[in-house]
Simulated scan of single mutants.
Amino acid sequence: MVTAGFILHGERDRAASITHDLATWLLQRGHDVRMPTDDAERLGLGEHGVPEDRFADGLDVAVSLGGDGTMLRTVELVADSGIPVIGINVGQLGYLTEVDPAGARMAIKRYLSGAYEIEERMLLAARIEGRESSEHVALNEAVIEKTPSGHTVRLAVSVDGEYFTTYAADGLIVATPTGSTAYSFSARGPIVAPMHRCLVLTPVSPHMLFDRTLVLDPHSTLHLEVVGHRPATVSADGRNLGTLHPGDALSCTASPRTARLVTFGEHDFLAILKTKFGLSDR
């Protein structure tokens, strides 16, 4: 018997109905299910709700029902425990979610029978160094950017302890290959195959002559220090982590842990790209 955890998009009714169906189906067969307390109560399954900080305890598999944002939240909750994640796409076509809603129950059946593979994706280890230090992991990216006041920020970048340059920009993105199709892509960064391992440093609207992305060794350590007199905000996978003041910094490198995504056959990244961008076969 397995313990399956569910994370669902809070504003999509279809995600709620599919979750209720899958959870009920598993419970009827003697398996255990859990989900964050608020979600469990909303589905009438309050006895299966747990606080998010206990979600991964003893879990065998996590099921994400939503889009890429829900997948990022799910990975964040289970990354430290190495728990595999099944992504069920409830919404627009995403890069991370593999299973269509119609195939949700079949995906669970295949997982239970062992008919699946694990695709390991690089995670970013991000450490805030400042008045309050903290450590985080991200599947897509860590970002330092200007505050809502709209002024550019100055960020001194070092690689493995060697000073590179100081950027004047709206922000800097440190992305994983998986994250190369997210915020970094919108800032004109390159598309990197998701199974590759590297650090992608992309400036956002740089106010300087050098405006190119750097693709660096994953084991390098990037050190981004706020200089000048303006503060900046820092986030990881869209989660706001607070404000960095002059002298504070963000350090990033590849995490020793990986995101473990459940796949049911080859994950055709190029086919997804063609679909999202309307590329023809001519």
Rank of each mutant, 00 (worst) to 15 (best):
R73P: 04
V157W: 07
E11V: 13
T3M: 15
F210D: 00
H245D: 08
R260I: 11
L65Q: 10
I83E: 03
L45G: 04
D237A: 03
R131K: 14
R121T: 07
G247F: 03
H207W: 03
G94Y: 00
G49E: 07
V90D: 06
A107Y: 00
S180G: 11
W25E: 14
D170K: 01
A254I: 08
I144R: 10
G46T: 01
A175R: 05
E11N: 15
S280I: 13
T74C: 10
V234W: 09
F6G: 06
F269A: 06
I173Y: 07
F264C: 05
G161R: 01
P190G: 04
P36V: 09
T233W: 09
R188K: 14
A40D: 05
V234F: 08
E11S: 15
I86A: 03
H31R: 09
G171E: 01
V63D: 06
R212D: 04
H219R: 09
T263N: 15
G94I: 01
L172G: 00
G242T: 08
I191T: 07
T181Y: 04
G238K: 08
H229A: 06
N240M: 12
V99F: 02
H229N: 06
D13R: 15
L65V: 13
L279Q: 14
L201D: 05
P203F: 05
S64E: 06
A138W: 10
E98T: 11
R230H: 14
V99Y: 03
D68G: 04
A16L: 11
V85H: 04
G179E: 08
V159T: 14
D21R: 15
T202G: 06
A182H: 00
S134D: 09
A56K: 14
L96M: 02
V33T: 04
T97A: 11
H219C: 04
G91Q: 10
D21T: 13
D60I: 14
G94S: 03
H223Y: 01
D170T: 02
C198K: 15
H207L: 08
M208G: 13
G67V: 08
R212F: 04
